[in-house]
Amino acid sequence: MLLVIDAGNTNIVFAVHDGVEWRGNWRLATSAQRTSDEYGVWLEVLLSRAGIRAQDITCAVIGTVVPAALYHLRRLCREWFFTEPLVARASLDWGFEIKTDSPDGVGADRLLNALAAHAHYRGPLVVVDFGTATTFDVVDETGAYIGGAISPGINLSIEALHQAAARLPRIGIGRPHMVIGRDTVPAMQSGVYWGYIGLIEGLLARIEGEFGASLKAIATGGLAPLFAEGTAKFTAIAPDLTLEGLRLLSLRNKPPALPRDRARFLETE
């Protein structure tokens, strides 16, 4: 079975694929201080509840935009599952060209989204990922990644609004029925939600205009279904696109071998 680890700025998602289907996925708040043993104890309990033994895990793949978390995630794979993880990097075989000025600077999550989106929906398309940042990533008809746009994520915007304005409370995310709020909180909810809908529709229109052709728009991330309710721009909703990208990447690349000696076994790049 394949252990997939998607380490984002806010959450780390662990998932297991048995070669046919996903057997489960579990989410944990991202913390660079969390050790491999903490991950291991937590994950072992959840795997057991899903009927999966540690020895059933035969390979692993990690995608992370948090470099500080990689050390302990790699140790988790080595010490708890006795496998050397494949780590998503621009230098791997993606099956497509990365047409940016600095391919190594593109976040692994953006490339993984591009890989999975083209495999399932075919380009040209744009992936909108509602994460800590809201990213727009463009894939051409051949599957090549050609760049995109990055905006502050919805939760970051809400927190910044609360922190910078003394009298504005911290609010939850939801779809208001009315644009004109009759009180402070409804007005904030309207501005946040419908403001983001405006950002999405505006950027998608400008991206299509610059690309010069119609693009399918694929929404991913935990908040994708919520924002898809407010616009007709999305062709499909795929909340777990990054996990699928990691699975596909692991199929394209040979699994690395474990270091032979104990010192190299415990070290990291």
Rank of each mutant, 00 (worst) to 15 (best):
R262C: 06
P67K: 08
I5Y: 03
E38C: 05
L203C: 05
A69G: 02
L86P: 10
W22K: 04
G51S: 05
A263I: 13
E79L: 14
G148H: 04
T184L: 14
E97A: 10
I5W: 05
E229P: 00
L76I: 04
A88P: 06
L249K: 06
E21P: 01
R247T: 07
G51W: 08
L28S: 06
H162D: 12
R252I: 08
L112I: 00
G195M: 14
R78Y: 03
G209K: 13
L246I: 01
G143I: 03
G19S: 14
A263F: 13
P152I: 08
L111A: 04
G123R: 02
F14T: 07
L241S: 01
R262L: 12
Y71N: 02
G181T: 14
V65M: 03
L251W: 10
L125W: 03
T235K: 08
A224D: 06
A232T: 11
C59W: 11
F211N: 00
A117L: 10
I218S: 10
F234P: 02
L203N: 09
A217E: 04
W42K: 09
A54Y: 02
I12A: 01
A50Y: 09
A144D: 10
A217D: 08
A90R: 04
R247V: 09
A68Y: 11
H177Q: 15
E79K: 10
I237W: 09
L215W: 07
V127I: 11
L199T: 13
T64C: 11
L73A: 05
S214P: 03
N155Q: 15
I150Y: 15
I146D: 00
A224W: 04
T231N: 03
S102V: 12
D56Q: 09
A236N: 01
E21T: 12
P169Y: 15
L3H: 13
R182V: 11
R89G: 07
A236H: 05
L215C: 05
T64I: 07
D109E: 09
D137M: 01
T100W: 07
A187E: 07
G63K: 06
E159Y: 13
A160L: 10
V128E: 00
H118P: 08
A54Q: 13
E159F: 15
G191S: 14
G209L: 14
P124M: 05
A257H: 01
R167Q: 14
Y39Q: 02
V16E: 00
R23I: 01
T235C: 10
P259T: 09
L226T: 13
T58A: 08
E210G: 05
L115T: 01
Y71I: 02
K216D: 11
R206C: 13
E229C: 01
M188E: 02
I146L: 05
L204C: 14
M178A: 15
D37I: 12
P169Q: 13
T220S: 10
G202C: 11
R75Y: 00
V106R: 02
A219H: 09
L251H: 11
I171E: 09
G8H: 05
E84Q: 14
F81P: 03
T35D: 11
T235F: 10
D104L: 03
T231M: 04
L248K: 01
T231K: 05
E159Q: 15
L125I: 06
F211Q: 02
G131D: 00
V4N: 06
E159A: 15
T132F: 00
L28C: 12
F130I: 00
R27W: 00
D240H: 08
I218F: 12
F234I: 05
A166D: 15
D93W: 03
R110F: 12
R175F: 08
V126A: 08
L249G: 03
F227D: 02
